[in-house]
């Protein structure tokens, strides 16, 4: 029998992978955005699994709305990346020489 702890552990692993991706992939803004999508995916999985194991349908409703939120976030993030690329000519945020007064 699959219990809720299985889903919890899976969601925590996905969340941590997303955090690692945001930290190590500063050379590519698109991969950072994909890692944020992974974090949202973990939250989504938590909503749905709690909705199943507590026999309450509202978790699925919130998961539905979370889908819309992450789609909006992807749209805004990608347009910001395009504007950044137009301005700077790169999508890396590694340049330490830009950080000066």
């Amino acid at each position: 029998m699959i219990e809720i702890t299985h889903f919890l552990v899976l969601a925590i692993i996905l969340f941590s992978l997303g955090v690692v991706g945001v930290i190590i992939n500063t050379h590519n803004l698109i991969v950072m955005l994909l890692s944020i999508e992974l974090i949202l995916l973990a939250a989504n999985l938590l909503f749905v699994s709690f909705s199943f194991f507590t026999q309450n349908v509202e978790g699925q409703m919130f998961s539905m709305f979370l889908l819309a939120i992450s789609a909006a976030e992807a749209a805004i993030g990608l347009s910001i990346i395009l504007a950044y690329f137009k301005a700077k000519g790169t999508i890396s945020i590694n340049q330490k020489d830009q950080m000066k007064g």
């Binding site: 552990v9 925590i12 930290i23």
Partner: peptide
């Protein structure tokens, strides 16, 4: 495409990620 990620940053990311995940877990 940019150059590979340095091992320092990889180690930092894996350390932070695993400790964060272990805390939540």
């Amino acid at each position: 495409h940019e150059e590979k990620i340095s091992w320092k940053k990889k180690a930092l990311g894996i350390f932070l990620g695993t400790s964060f995940g272990a805390e939540i877990a």
